[in-house]
Write a protein that binds this DNA or RNA. Sequence first.
DNA 1: TTGTAGGCGTTATCAG
DNA 2: CTGATAACGCCTACAA
Lengths: 338, 338
Amino acid sequence: MTAPERGQATILDVARLAGVSRTTVSRVLNEPERVTPDTLAKVRAAADRLNFVPSAAARSLRNGRTGTIALLVGDVSQPFHGGLAKTISHEADDLGYSVMLYDLAHSETRLRRVLEKLPKQGVDAVVLATADALVEPETLQALDVLHEHGIPVLTTVDRDDARHALSLGFDYREPARAATSAMAGSGHGPVALLVGEGIGPLGRQLVAGYLDALSPGAPELVVETPYDFDGAQAAAAALLHRSSVGGILAATVPMAIGAIRAAEARGLRVPGDLVVLSGEEVPLAAQVRPAITTLSAAAERNGHAIMRLLADALAGRDAPRPPLEAELVVRESFVPTR
Amino acid sequence: MTAPERGQATILDVARLAGVSRTTVSRVLNEPERVTPDTLAKVRAAADRLNFVPSAAARSLRNGRTGTIALLVGDVSQPFHGGLAKTISHEADDLGYSVMLYDLAHSETRLRRVLEKLPKQGVDAVVLATADALVEPETLQALDVLHEHGIPVLTTVDRDDARHALSLGFDYREPARAATSAMAGSGHGPVALLVGEGIGPLGRQLVAGYLDALSPGAPELVVETPYDFDGAQAAAAALLHRSSVGGILAATVPMAIGAIRAAEARGLRVPGDLVVLSGEEVPLAAQVRPAITTLSAAAERNGHAIMRLLADALAGRDAPRPPLEAELVVRESFVPTR
DNA sequence: TTGTAGGCGTTATCAG
DNA sequence: CTGATAACGCCTACAA
């Protein structure tokens, strides 16, 4: 009776119980085909009986990889990030990876602290799913350190700041231009853009597209707001107070909802007096009233795309990445005339 | 020049560069006070210069702990779980822990697979934040295994199935009773209960409270629906089609929204013709129209409470846990008469 | 096909 | 106060 002392059973306990050597047990775990069906069964039985689970720590120490990816997200409680986290969790699981979740609360300080402890945590890859701007040099340096350690970094949006990062290549500029121009064409009045404060790489694309679409003489109404409902609602209220606005392009769905509520509070009806459009697509957009028209940058699709990129990166393949394209998902808040 | 070969610098590299032994370096890391200020500075400088980060794998292998907790959640893309994940992520960070996120998609198979690989992943604690029923014996067995391995399991709701789990002790039965009774008192007609399919421990509490409140002869309208908007909307549509209903108590906010949309589709107005109440409190409840009255089982508060429990468990303390209490957060969808 | 032996980077024990 | 040494559990040449 080789009872494994209380606690984990080790590969050695299994070996003893099965009457073989550690090597054989290890082989059963990693290259089952190179082992006699007979011993294989014996070992498997022993492992089962001891409830054996190989130690991840020992394994990582030995072969460098941890089977873990880090997911850094601006705010998981926001629907887009939540959806992203969900699909990434599922697909990582399919790939045999586990996901470390870090909620950044849109704070660069937090991001930096996380980035700095990541090499020590020993993750195999990092998914940086925030559209926030990175201004502090330490942050970029931390990203470089990851690169030096050979840890691939994937981002959801193209960012010039994180040089070595692999990104999806989603283009938001042209969709933003088209959307702005369509909204302007609805004849309600000037179009405004609500974008996350700090204006990160995504925000820049939206602003660029928005400005592209503005006809000469049209007012440039770019408003930075916090990423959530409350912030956007307040900002939209202020905006509507000081300018006459006929259309609002909001970066996120919660921001769009905030804008709609602000409009309602002023007695404006959507889409009757004011049209609203969101840059991201999440189920919630269809569930609120008025339902929100979006640019179809869907969380789920982004999640899939990211994970494909990640699988390639982890396998050391060069990822051929077909750029993602956006199309309008028309709902109540804005029905383009044509 | 003891250049650390490309890749991570090890404790040995630091030792050599500082002209001391590994032991001393380790001490500087873990018990700085037991080292001469002089050598301490020397070692710190060397570590800095080499960009040294201790290997988490080696550390775990040596001392058993990983600094990681697992968060198992029914569906992160749902607002309640998203909020929970957010606060748990933040507080774990404050405690020096990292969070592994596992999205279960409300699937027990998935849950079982995760539970079985957790001991191998080497987590220090598990937060099981799902209200789903656990029916397969293997699942419960996997929970027992965790317990045998000395890994504490915390749950958001009391569950008789997971014997060894520490839970918040939140009582949903009495609030459900009070709410049902209040809604019945609104005089719109019979009250129905929309609860997650499978009826887990939370569902059972809701059902019990609901039944407690029913006056003799009142119809028992308990409807199981998927946990999301779409499922609840469909179920509510069917319910409204076959019964006359004056009030709906929905377990989650998305379910409540689904119910409201279903009612609207039949020409019913909320709260004019039908009142609606949700069992959980999330910001979204205040953002939709009609805004949803809730029982204030707030994601954030739950997250805090869980983490306090967890901190105690990890420190080996016995947690004195004051039970959480619910109170009505009154919004548009149901204003109790009094 | 199976076994032997050494080391991955840390920390704990025990000397000095 | 500091250093040598032996584990932690696993994988992988290499040898049998």
